[in-house]
């Protein structure tokens, strides 16, 4: 069926089977491969994007459910050459090791900071419950988000 989704600010219209997930649609049909698929059953958070401003696991949203919505993926975070403050903070604080979970971490961090611009360390850790880092690099991820919060307030 035909769907129209505004992805990273650009309206995309596509004919797609209803059984295709948003994550699959982004990666295989639009070549937006920054959204990673880990567990594919809403456990790991690697596929997190924002849907109408809220972080969601795109493996568990059908592309057809997103019809008419706005989606932001990791590719939509930077403004031209200017990285988003969350991305910049991840670089600054070495908030990644292998990098597989990073796009999902950044997108979830955006949701955390949208709802709570001044989170405590505990609130950040609670907020990241749905994102797994198999390198176990959580300490620096948390530090990165703390730093991003400070930068975004400034």
């Amino acid at each position: 069926m035909n769907i129209s989704i505004t992805i990273n600010g650009k309206l995309v219209t596509h004919d797609i089977e209803p059984r295709i997930s948003l994550s699959h649609f982004l990666r295989e049909h639009l070549d937006l491969t920054g959204t990673h698929i880990g567990c594919d059953t809403s456990g790991c958070g690697a596929c997190t994007v924002t849907l109408d401003g809220q972080a969601v696991k795109s493996c568990t949203v059908l592309a057809v459910q997103a019809d008419g919505s706005e989606v932001t993926t990791i590719e939509g975070m930077a403004q031209g050459d200017q990285m988003h403050p969350i991305q910049e903070a991840f670089r600054e604080h070495h908030g990644l090791q292998c990098g597989f979970c990073t796009p999902g971490m950044v997108m979830t961090a955006a949701d955390i900071l949208k709802n709570n611009p001044n989170p405590t360390e505990e609130e950040i850790r609670h907020g990241l419950e749905g994102n797994f880092c198999r390198c176990t690099g959580y300490h620096n991820i948390v530090k990165s988000i703390q730093h991003a919060a400070e930068q975004m307030k400034a």
């Binding site: 809403s42 958070g45 997190t48 849907l51 809220q54 972080a55 969601v56 696991k57 568990t60 949203v61 979830t108 949701d111 955390i112 907020g127 419950e129 749905g130 994102n131």
Partner: peptide, 9 residues
């Protein structure tokens, strides 16, 4: 319940 992303959906 679950996590932020699950609670959003």
């Amino acid at each position: 319940i679950g996590d932020i992303q699950v609670r959003n959906r």
